[in-house]
Nucleic acid binder design. Structure first.
Lengths: 150, 150
DNA sequence: TTAATTGATATCAATATAGTATCAGTTCTA
DNA sequence: TAGAACTGATACTATATTGATATCAATTAA
């Protein structure tokens, strides 16, 4: 059972970069290189994030991508939703009549409770929080001014 | 993001049936019919559960399957592990060097915390508990002696 | 003996995930 | 104003996972 797919993982790492370099456009190429994310794959993810109003882009030379929202306003719950779909008990459950099958019904009740717990936790983890965590770790280990390579 | 796959969903429902009919062998065919689970697919799941010591079988006419463990000793966390693999942050993370990538590292820390929360919750939900929940719901709505169809 | 059953395994189809390729359009800079 | 550095848009391919089906041998009760 995989919690995060590559898409979400890559998207988070791209946003961590954009969130750390505010006010400048960062190219897909530099994100791809620094974060070791396949270039064209990343391009698709960035487009998707534009469509969801998380980032903006600028075309042409010296163009690139920049945060649109505040890092603290982007919980990874939202990224999971964008790239993996809403957390749900089982695909088709909600299309069927509630309680059509009683066994499913009691199980559904339990799992919806867990869903809420999970979503609440993922909501607490924002890109902003991760950036601060990251700074703290890097600060302790490397001192400040670290570029932050792999 | 799908929490339960069909395999796990079907396996749980099969166990709920076996757990409700203790002491008799229940055929794959009757489980398939009552729970509306594809017959051959279910057969595979039952074999898998035998391999994991959850149920036993008896071959031949009047044969079938029966619980081996107590229903209260089977948390759905275990079924998720059997049919969907252990809950994990991302597939390959543990094969790589810890903290090889700092961004992944801080993220990993957060998500492992959530994993624990989730696993703890799934551990609380046992087949025995679901059977009791099921009885309570059926009791309230239909009165006792209900066969419990779809 | 035979029908009802599981054991074991092979195969297939559909979907999701991961990654690649291409070309048109935009913008900075020399 | 040419051309390099970019994004926009879209089509395509490969691989893995999920869901499902098919077949045949062995076992057992009646």
């Amino acid at each position: 059972m995989k919690v995060l797919t590559k898409k979400t993982d890559y998207a988070i790492r791209a946003l961590l970069m954009l969130g750390s370099k505010r006010g400048v456009y960062v190219s897909a190429k530099s994100i791809s290189t620094e974060q070791d994310i396949p270039y064209q794959f990343l391009r698709g993810l960035l487009q998707e994030m534009i469509r969801h109003d998380l980032i903006v882009s600028k075309e042409g030379a010296q163009g690139g991508f920049m945060m649109k929202k505040e890092p603290d306003e982007i919980p990874i719950a939202q990224l999971i939703e964008v790239f993996q779909g809403k957390v749900q008990v089982s695909e088709c459950m909600f299309r069927k009549q509630i309680c059509a099958n009683r066994a499913r019904c009691v199980l559904r009740h339990e799992i919806m409770r867990i869903e809420q717990v999970v979503n609440r936790e993922f909501d607490k983890i924002t890109i902003g929080k991760l950036i601060r965590d990251l700074d703290a770790v890097n600060g302790m280990t490397h001192g400040s001014g670290e570029k932050g390579g792999s």
